[in-house]
């Protein structure tokens, strides 16, 4: 049996999400191979080679793959899958975009966003926005799987370094072209890998008021997130959104400020280790999942929290 893990990277370093997907892959079969597809991305391949459980890293570098366009990347993976039984990726937007295209070419179903590996054909995955958990069994030889990264630990650096094998680029079918990417550059950690997240909802009233949360976040080394309501209201950009249709997170500490706790938001954060809710409505559903709920006006509570944290820092 053999497992290939698709690496998520920015052509420089390997993303945390892949280290978690690797942990899931190793539960299916160990050791695994990792494929790094991109352009001038050898350093990401070096990262992957150091991880425990990685036997070999395939490196494919070509301008075609600079932005991981779906069609050429899926074609290449389809060719590589002739030698593998499993293709595994983190359920990042790249993974979710590319893997089903490979699965269809292989004439297999994809098993999406697994949260546990029961055996090499049986997996658990959330359905109905996490309101139910399905146990599913595959009947095919080849399998294509995406991994919900919050459910798995980060793979650690191992004692040996895997070999890196360069693979030739495939053809570009020329169906699409990259134009531009607008990625917010922030000093703060990424939402999906942050240990602490401070999120704001409609109660924040404006984008400007998110500065209060940013100040708290910076004292905690936290990422800033938002509910769908806050994103829809235009307070913050879409990449901030935590929830069923945004990012699914599970940090050590999640601080929900002015968030009522709609089902679809809870689906994205209810696996956080400790949840804090600050809301002036004492009947807000967010309190039902919160370990520490504070019924207060956020415009008093957040500045006060900011001051308290400042004291601790000193």
């Amino acid at each position: 049996m053999s497992v290939l893990v698709l690496a998520e990277h920015n052509n420089q370093s390997l993303k945390e999400a892949t280290k978690k997907a690797l942990t899931a892959a190793l539960k299916i079969f160990s050791p695994a191979h990792v494929v790094v597809i991109g352009n001038n991305c050898a350093s990401a391949a070096n990262d992957a080679a150091t991880l425990e459980g990685v036997e070999k890293v395939l490196l494919v570098e070509d301008t075609t793959y600079e932005n991981m366009l779906c069609e050429p990347t899926a074609d290449l993976l389809f060719e590589l899958m002739k030698s593998y039984d499993y293709l595994v990726s983190a359920a990042t937007t790249n993974g979710k975009n590319i893997l089903p295209r490979v699965a269809a070419k292989l004439d297999v179903s994809q098993i999406s966003e697994i949260i546990s590996v029961i055996d090499n054909k049986t997996f658990q995955r959330p359905i109905y926005a996490g309101n139910a958990i399905a146990t599913v069994e595959s009947s095919t030889e080849k399998n294509v799987i995406t991994v919900r990264t919050t459910a798995f630990e980060t793979a650690q650096v191992g004692s040996s370094v895997a070999t890196i094998e360069k693979i030739d680029a495939g053809n570009n079918p020329g169906l699409s072209e990259f134009i531009e990417e607008k990625v917010s550059s922030s000093e703060r950690p990424e939402l999906t890998s942050a240990g602490i997240i401070v999120s704001g909802g409609r109660g924040m009233q404006s984008g400007d008021n998110f500065k209060m949360l940013e100040s708290v976040a910076d004292k905690l080394g936290a990422a800033v997130g938002a509910s769908r309501a806050a994103v829809d209201a235009g307070f913050v950009p879409n990449e901030y959104q935590v929830g069923q249709t945004g990012k699914v997170v599970a940090p050590e500490l999640y601080i929900a400020v002015g968030i009522s706790g709609a089902i679809q938001h809870l689906a994205g954060m209810k696996d956080s280790k400790v949840i804090v809710a600050i809301n002036k409505d004492d009947e807000a559903p967010i309190f039902e999942v919160a370990d520490y709920g504070l019924v207060a006006d956020l415009f008093d509570a957040v500045p006060e929290l900011d001051k308290e944290l400042e004291k601790i820092q000193k």
């Binding site: 297999v108 179903s109 098993i111 049986t122 959330p126 359905i127 996490g130 309101n131 139910a132 958990i133 399905a134 146990t135 599913v136 069994e137 595959s138 009947s139 095919t140 209810k270 949840i275 309190f287 039902e288 999942v289 919160a290 370990d291 520490y292 709920g293 504070l294 019924v295």
Partner: peptide, 20 residues
């Protein structure tokens, strides 16, 4: 079908409701 559903369960309930 190539994938079959063996069972469907409720997710573990989170015990919240603590206040400060």
């Amino acid at each position: 079908p190539k994938v079959s559903t063996k069972k469907v369960e409720e997710p573990p309930k989170r015990v919240g409701g603590g206040k400060v």
